[in-house]
Design a binder for these strands. Structure first.
Lengths: 183, 183
DNA sequence: GTAAACATGTAAATTGTTACATGATTTT
DNA sequence: AAAATCATGTAACAATTTACATGTTTAC
């Protein structure tokens, strides 16, 4: 099952929105790891409506054709969203985990702290792995020039190191904020 | 067109490998942003072979059934890979850009430097955007507790900030290494 | 003796992209 | 006068995931 329906529920859990508004918010705020197209958006919205996860709040018809359809989340939708947020994500699914954090305000902080502690471990382990790998690659030649394959290998591994360190640091930050109960 | 064929060519540009080996390398080194499944791997390999981007080097049959098929890249494959590496990536396609960097050792450093400078600008601009956004979200309430939607909004934006800063820093590092002609 | 690793491959189902279609309003 | 924005939606195509299929060897 894909995350798209939960992404839409995550946005509606905050405020009633139209499909168009949702797309704007997704493209403007979380586009670095999640993108959406019209073709997924509108059918998913219809599906969520017929299954009663969301409800049409108003159908504003302005001067021109397509009326703006504003949706609200139902209790069923909110329950389903909460269940998804606390459900464990696969190791490696850092993007799904981030998506869940966007609705973490809906659930008990203790549950989120426990999940973040787990994630931190995973990213720290991979940070260590990549660091060792980078050192071993560097050790293979005393001088590595731009035309050598090791140059690119190390370059990409360095991004992996930056990424894993960033994610681990972010987990730490989130844990700290949750414990203090303020951001 | 998807990146998978170029990922396989990128690996074969370094050394001859079997499909299984390629999968191991992908899962072990760049799995944080690129994943592959058997169903994509083997048909793509066949396609690359019939189109002469790669060639079967050996077909080692050991004691048990599936013989290990080791492939090498052809001149045509290498040319196609180089052309892909220097072709511009869409803004936002940070993963494809990283994939291209993995074969940057094959092309002129000047071309890569120019691309990295462009990328750096993009990520710096988005870093600025996210920083402003985070500040404005924080300014909405004087105390934001864990149960408040703003708590999660800021949390996720903070990851965006870390990500964009990380990517921009990495571009700087790469540019520096390319200019010094050593890593 | 059970599970994991080795090694290649296929089928079915889902998911996602690109392009199109409509049509008024606002900006360049 | 052209282009972009607003607003919803569909059709055709491409890509990806999940599960299956085979069968040996090595590790627990």
């Amino acid at each position: 099952m894909s995350s798209i329906q939960y992404v839409l529920l995550s946005l509606l859990a905050r405020e009633p929105l139209s499909g168009y508004d949702m797309k704007q918010q997704i493209n403007g705020r979380i586009s670095f790891f999640y993108k959406i197209s019209n073709n997924q958006l509108y059918p998913t919205l219809s599906k969520l409506e017929t299954e009663e996860y969301i409800r049409l709040q108003s159908h504003e018809r302005e001067s021109y054709r397509p009326a703006k359809k504003i949706y609200t989340i139902t209790d069923k939708g909110l329950d389903s969203l909460k269940a998804w947020v606390i459900s464990p994500s696969e190791p490696g699914a850092w993007d799904e985990f981030l998506l869940k954090q966007y609705s973490s305000w809906l659930v008990e902080p203790e549950v989120m702290i426990a999940q973040l502690v787990e994630r931190r471990k995973e990213h720290e382990a991979r940070l260590e792995e990549y660091t060792v790998k980078a050192a071993s690659l560097r050790g293979q030649e005393e001088r590595i020039e731009a035309g050598h394959p090791l140059f690119s290998s190390i370059g990409v591994i360095e991004m992996g190191i930056l990424f894993e360190r960033g994610y681990a640091d972010w987990c730490d930050k989130m844990i700290g904020w949750l414990r203090e109960n303020r951001i």
